[in-house]
Design a protein around this nucleic acid. Structure first.
Length: 171
DNA sequence: GCGACAG
DNA sequence: ATCTTGTCGC
């Protein structure tokens, strides 16, 4: 049981996501940038604090160029389909501490592969104005064929029929 | 109606 | 995300 911070109704959140979706600009990236930043978040024991780390690497040497961390108190509760509202704040706080300006951001969670095409990576990318890709470990929505065992293999992600239905808001 | 549901 | 015992794979 987290703090009483989920003031926003599902409708308000959906409206926010729609706004994000409209601001996303999909574009092909032909070359691997020199500076890439990896983003991830974690929480303390009772989830009263969210912590994030931003690590910049030089893709030519694979060496760490810079790194920063940030903390946020009482993050909103997690809700399937609305992860960005919980994690984007800390991630952006960590990003704000970087002196370097990466040309590509890689963060946990989905981006376009989201019921509203407004996953965490979209929120982060729009907020930063930097090309961003989501790298989720688990499935959220849509479907795709089995991916082969070889490194680099891939399969196109299918239609995004909304499978995540907003839960009722307590208030 | 039942199951699914990033982190 | 986070906790934790038993089991599996290299």
């Amino acid at each position: 049981m987290a703090a009483s911070n989920d003031q926003l109704s599902n409708q308000e959140l959906l409206t926010q996501q729609r706004s994000i979706t409209e601001q996303v600009n999909l574009r092909p990236m032909h070359a691997l940038p020199q500076l890439v930043v990896g983003l991830d978040a974690a929480y303390d024991e009772d989830s009263s604090k969210a912590v994030a780390a931003a690590v910049v690497i030089d893709t030519a040497s694979f060496e760490i160029v810079e790194q920063a961390t940030a903390t946020v108190a009482n993050p909103v509760d997690y809700r399937p389909g609305f992860l960005a509202f919980r994690e984007a704040p800390v991630l952006l706080a960590a990003m704000a501490k970087l002196r370097h300006e990466p040309e590509l951001v890689v963060c946990d969670g989905h981006g376009i592969a989201h019921p509203a095409r407004a996953g965490l990576a979209c929120h982060v990318g729009v907020a930063l104005g930097v090309p961003t890709i989501g790298c989720a470990k688990n499935h959220l929505t849509g479907s795709f064929a089995d991916i082969g065992p070889e490194r680099g293999e891939s399969q196109p992600h299918g239609s995004h029929r909304p499978t995540v239905r907003p839960r009722r808001t307590p208030a």
